[in-house]
């Protein structure tokens, strides 16, 4: 594999910013570099210059590029113990004070997390009282989320997770096999709004009782984590909950004092100050 310099990465981020108005300047360097190297290899660009040329000339290519640049690996009921906690503690708590619940999946990728949520809510009998918005920067992956069609081989892991989550049904009741694919029951996400949204450049667009932003900010450096966390904070009602990935932490963020830790193991935080 070839190597690329920091200056090459800078040239790429600058071009993207100027031409397409996305800002990857503050993405974590190590993974960003691997993504670029991977794209160079995938499309057999002999050099960074050739990639830059293509990005300049071919707007349609940018969408593909963005899809490859982002890391979309995800699964249903990832960290089953977290989903149990959500069902047994967090959601009942939210429902103590209101009748409905608004949820934002920030960085929903191909939608497995959204389907997990819908299944959880359905089994609690409150799906029709829930308003879910699921966003991602990557148009291509959002399309996959909307379609709810997954590789059958992934369902094995998803089912294992569901069993460890201890759902009241069986995951196989929520999809059917068609042409070697798992096709999810569409009624689960009937009322979910899937939208394109960039956490970095995008505006705060609503307020929520619950935000899941798991394994998204790990791709940002600390400066950008701070910026995005401020937006997430602003998007929460007071006493709303923020969930991040199991190996992420808020403690070194500037506004961490506006949250309290509800569950450290499962990375559940609650907004206590505006």
């Amino acid at each position: 594999m070839q190597d690329i310099e920091i200056s090459d990465l800078r040239r790429i981020t600058e071009l993207i910013k100027e031409t397409y108005n996305y800002d990857f300047t503050n993405y974590a360097m190590s993974s960003f570099k691997r993504r670029i190297l991977r794209i160079l290899e995938l499309y057999k660009f002999g050099s960074v210059d050739l990639l830059i040329k293509r990005l300049k000339e071919d707007r349609a290519f940018f969408e593909e590029f963005l899809a490859e640049l982002t890391v979309n690996v995800t699964e249903m009921f990832r960290d089953p113990s977290f989903w149990r906690e959500l069902r047994d503690q967090i959601i009942p708590n939210i429902l103590l004070n209101h009748n409905t619940i608004s949820i934002w999946h920030a960085g929903c990728s191909s939608g497995e997390e959204v389907f997990s949520m819908a299944i959880l809510l359905k089994e609690m009998g409150i799906l029709d009282r829930s308003k879910i918005i699921a966003t991602d920067i990557d148009k291509v992956i959002l399309q996959r989320a909307r379609s709810g069609v997954y590789a059958l081989k992934n369902m094995e892991l998803n089912e294992k997770n569901y069993i460890r989550y201890q759902g009241t049904s069986s995951l196989s009741n929520y999809f059917k096999e068609e042409n070697g694919k798992a096709v999810m029951d569409k009624s689960l996400v009937e009322h979910v709004s899937f939208r394109e949204h960039d956490l970095v450049q995008g505006m705060v667009f609503n307020k929520f009782d619950l935000i899941l932003c798991r394994n998204v900010m790990i791709y940002f450096n600390q400066t950008l984590q701070n910026t995005v966390l401020k937006k997430l904070h602003e998007s929460l009602f007071k006493y709303g909950y923020l969930i991040i990935g199991s190996k992420e932490s808020l403690i070194w963020c500037e506004i961490s004092n506006k949250f309290i830790v509800v569950n450290n193991e499962e990375k559940i935080y609650k907004k206590i100050k505006d």
């Binding site: 690996v73 790990i218 791709y219």
Partner: peptide, 9 residues
């Protein structure tokens, strides 16, 4: 001198 975690392929 920090760690960075990722869920890449």
């Amino acid at each position: 001198n920090t760690f960075a975690l990722s869920t890449e392929e």
